[in-house]
Simulated assay, not measured.
Amino acid sequence: MAKALTLDTTLSNSSVDDRDILLLVQTVRAGIKYPLFVKIASQSPFNLSEWSVFLHLSERTIQRYKKEKKTFDPIHSEKILEVTLLYKRGIEVFGSPENFNAWLEAKNVALGGITPKSLLDTTFGISLLKDELTRIEHGVLA
């Protein structure tokens, strides 16, 4: 349980990374509490509607989590962490949130002409974006 508290602090300080996989697994299993989700969401460019699409939950359901002080199920907690880790990685590769946000919104030839943000609703899409960020980092474009 103490480890999950550490992750709460780590996430809210935007220093989470995927080096401590067991901590991430433990946190996913325990579920992300709504207040932590709010902190994470506030540090991203995504609004509630976009998070709703990424998590495959209605906005109303997410709002109910707030009202009922619920914890996200493991499947949703995992997606929250995946998006958070990808966003952190994107900022590292692009050098600033503004540059990465612009990339997320722009149609991408290497991705078949779709916007990278449109892939954040699936684990496969997130994996594809991680691979694309690695290619960009190493100067291998398309």
Rank of each mutant, 00 (worst) to 15 (best):
89 R>H: 12
80 I>N: 09
87 Y>K: 04
78 E>K: 15
54 F>W: 03
83 V>A: 12
110 A>M: 00
106 A>L: 11
84 T>R: 14
115 T>C: 13
127 S>V: 07
86 L>V: 02
116 P>D: 08
78 E>R: 12
115 T>L: 03
92 E>N: 12
62 I>H: 02
101 N>A: 12
122 T>P: 07
90 G>I: 14
65 Y>K: 04
66 K>I: 01
78 E>N: 14
115 T>S: 10
120 L>W: 01
59 E>N: 14
80 I>A: 07
103 W>T: 01
48 L>F: 09
55 L>P: 07
81 L>A: 00
58 S>E: 13
98 E>T: 15
99 N>Q: 13
63 Q>V: 05
85 L>A: 08
85 L>M: 10
89 R>Y: 11
119 L>G: 03
95 G>Y: 04
97 P>W: 04
77 S>A: 07
104 L>G: 02
52 S>D: 04
84 T>I: 04
75 I>Y: 10
72 F>V: 03
86 L>Y: 04
108 N>K: 00
92 E>I: 05
109 V>P: 00
109 V>C: 00
53 V>C: 01
119 L>W: 01
125 G>D: 06
52 S>G: 12
74 P>V: 11
123 T>L: 12
74 P>Q: 08
104 L>A: 04
79 K>E: 08
124 F>W: 03
100 F>T: 06
88 K>P: 00
111 L>Q: 05
60 R>M: 06
62 I>N: 05
60 R>E: 14
129 L>C: 07
111 L>R: 04
52 S>C: 07
98 E>Y: 06
118 S>W: 01
99 N>S: 15
98 E>L: 12
56 H>L: 09
76 H>W: 02
115 T>W: 00
58 S>W: 12
80 I>C: 03
47 N>R: 08
66 K>S: 11
77 S>R: 08
129 L>K: 03
122 T>M: 11
77 S>C: 11
125 G>T: 09
54 F>K: 03
82 E>G: 00
126 I>D: 04
56 H>A: 12
130 K>I: 14
56 H>D: 14
55 L>E: 03
62 I>V: 14
102 A>T: 13
